[in-house]
Amino acid sequence: MTNEELKIFISAHTPEVVFEESQFLNTTISFDKLYSLAKHLRTNPDADFDYLFCLSGVDWKDHMLVVYHLTSRKHKHNVVLKAKITDRVNPEVHTVCDIWKTAELHEREVYDLFGIKFTEHPDLRRLFLDDTWGFPLRKDYKDDVTIVQL
């Protein structure tokens, strides 16, 4: 599918999305709608996004994004899903572990570095850092000892 077709396809399932085209088709979506859209994109044979090749978090200070880069091996089209989370104190998004197995470790990493909780994740624990550490990739993270502000 081309980007235009993908836009129509995604809007048909979830109308309240914001599209933006850069290198890939970016689809910003509220965090509570993400799981059903992701499942739809994976299971619908016309979309068939079977390969989650990148899962990252981005902190935009007023909101946070969980970015899913998806590709379909069969149809060779790509889409980027962005789950927008406005709650910085207790950010939550539904896990996609059961859709793409690779998400398990990636989500743990995002949880570790951003503090975004993935509900119904089978094993959500800190991955790299210990439990008392802050969330270093958040923009409001302060560490006076090891980070020197220039």
Partner: peptide, 19 residues
């Protein structure tokens, strides 16, 4: 850069180790 993310091959390959 505002945010850099590296999608490293080994990170994903490791998750298959259990399987």
């Amino acid at each position: 850069p505002y945010r850099m993310k590296f999608r490293s091959p080994n990170f994903s390959n490791l998750s298959a180790l259990r399987e």
